[in-house]
């Protein structure tokens, strides 16, 4: 049997006086869309940080693409094909929209970043100054690809490709986050609340986009508060509260799980909580 693309085992992260993530197990298979839900402060974003290498677990392991990646630096994880978006949006404000996306494609640069030990950086500097045909061609194709990615968002981003990212609206910045992540051509894409702060029609638009990504075979791990959308899109759902897993399984099952209902009712913290059937 092929091991799942992402395999999280017993991951725990303690902060001073609180266990933000407590012994969480999680599998994501190739082509799957798994969602993580839970009230505010449940530990979802912390879990993402542990998976994407921004933080190290106190206990537990993370395997990605058959390799133990626990505590690996984020740049190494990106090179292995893991991309993420940030809950509060971390686009590069002073970079143009297209440059933001191109930074997302950084790990795909091959010609200009030859894997030569020791002298690699110097060769990279030389190639960046000299720009032989191969380097130019690579840049061209990345640019074309970046534009294709921007085009996924209709005319939200593409006409603004040369504007600095700080001039974008909030929703457009969230879209740019996703575009930048897609430019990595990730094997696994982690999205932290892609629709936070979006209105209904924008959310619907995002839902269509995520659905299309999934249909194209993209493996996704999604944090989302909008349950309606989670239930529509997900293959499986992990519900967390106070760092712990309170339910896991098929969307319908998790939704009707008493522990989940209890967690949400108890917290009153669900963004646009639909009445739980």
């Amino acid at each position: 049997m092929v091991p799942p693309l992402l395999q999280v085992r017993g991951v725990t992260r303690r902060f001073a006086g609180l266990v933000a993530v407590n012994a969480i197990d999680l599998d994501v298979a190739e082509g799957e869309l798994v969602s993580v839900i839970g009230p505010n402060g449940a530990g979802k974003s912390t879990l993402f940080n542990l998976i994407s290498g921004l933080d190290r677990p106190n206990v537990g392991t993370v395997h990605f693409a058959g390799q133990d990646v626990t505590g690996l630096r984020p740049e190494r994880l990106a090179a292995l094909g893991l991309a993420r978006t940030f809950q509060h949006g971390r686009v590069f404000g002073n970079l143009s929209v297209i440059d933001n996306v191109l930074v997302g494609a950084h790990v795909r640069l091959r010609c200009v970043r030859p894997a030569v030990p020791l002298l690699g950086p110097l060769i990279e500097l030389g190639l960046a100054a000299w720009r032989p045909a191969a380097v130019r061609a690579e840049e061209q194709s990345l640019r074309a690809d970046a534009e294709a990615i921007l085009a996924l968002f209709g005319d939200r981003l593409l006409p603004r490709r040369d504007q600095p990212a700080y001039s974008l609206s909030y929703a457009n910045r969230r879209r740019l986050e996703i575009a930048r992540a897609l430019a990595l051509h990730p094997r696994l894409l982690l999205m932290d609340e892609p629709t936070a702060g979006m209105n209904e029609s924008e959310t619907a638009e995002m839902q269509v986009l995520i659905g299309r990504l999934k249909a194209s075979g993209q493996t996704l791990l999604l944090i989302e508060h909008k349950l309606e959308m989670v239930m529509r899109l997900s293959d499986r759902v992990l519900a967390m509260d106070d760092g712990q897993r309170i339910a896991e399984g098929l969307p319908g099952r998790v939704r009707n799980d008493p522990a989940v209902i209890e967690a949400y009712l108890g917290h009153h913290a669900l963004g646009s909580a639909e009445p739980v059937a």
Binding site: S52, G53, L54, R73, P74, E75, A78, A79, A83, R84, F86, R90, V91, F92, G93, N94, L95, D99, L102, V103, G104, H106, V107, L109, V112, E124, L125, A128, R131, E139, R180, A181, L184
Partner: peptide
């Protein structure tokens, strides 16, 4: 070239840049 945007990305947000493999 690519160095320009990579350098500036580090300036803007080092954490995000590293998350994209820089």
């Amino acid at each position: 070239g690519h160095l320009g945007r990579t350098w500036r990305a580090i300036r803007e947000d080092e954490v995000a840049a590293r998350s994209y493999g820089v």
